[in-house]
């Protein structure tokens, strides 16, 4: 990048490894400035990457998967399952006689597994005390800033079928 540097009386190696103590301060400051600007470039590239991912985002399609039978779990009970892949752990909670809700079990803060607390009627993350609403998965308290992804359920006969994942 020779166009960045104007002609100097000293060769570059002499400037970068100065023998004069007074000049050393300049060298270290210039190098630190260079490092900071490169970090700034890194941040910009990161933002560009997010922009590219946003522009070329394609909504994924999810399979349909039977996850439980209607009377299988009692009111206040839970069932753990994986959806849409074997690595995506989810939690199904029966909140009333006729109502079931399901969310991803991965906390949106640092991916710890959340559990259902029947006493406080909410989903709790044991790692950093992040609490989520059982009604819509929104954050009630703690470090997580995003709600839990919701698994969309459909009732087909006496079976509960997972059909979609909603990230809001």
């Amino acid at each position: 990048m020779s166009w960045l540097r104007r002609s100097s009386s000293e060769p570059l190696w002499k400037e970068e490894f100065s023998v004069r103590t007074a000049d050393e301060r300049y060298v270290t400051r210039r190098q630190l400035t260079k490092f900071l600007v490169l970090t700034s470039l890194g941040m910009f590239v990161g933002n560009l990457w997010i922009l590219v991912r946003s522009l070329f985002y394609k909504a994924p399609t999810y399979p349909q998967q039977t996850i439980a039978r209607l009377g299988e779990i009692p009111v206040g009970g839970v069932k753990l399952f994986t959806y849409p892949t074997k690595d995506d752990h989810c939690i199904l909670v029966r909140t009333s006689e006729s109502e079931h809700v399901s969310y991803s079990q991965k906390c949106t803060h640092l991916s710890c597994a959340v559990y259902f607390s029947q006493e406080s009627n909410r989903l709790e993350c044991p790692c950093h005390k992040g609490f989520f609403s059982i009604t819509d998965g929104s954050v009630l308290q703690g470090p997580p800033s995003r709600p839990l992804p919701r698994i969309v359920l459909e009732r087909r006969g006496d079976e509960l079928v997972a059909v979609d994942v909603k990230v809001s």
């Binding site: 941040m43 910009f44 990161g46 933002n47 560009l48 997010i50 922009l51 991912r53 946003s54 522009l55």
Partner: peptide, 9 residues
């Protein structure tokens, strides 16, 4: 994403 990238640039 777009305004963030512009301001970052």
């Amino acid at each position: 994403a777009l305004p963030a990238a512009i301001f970052s640039g």
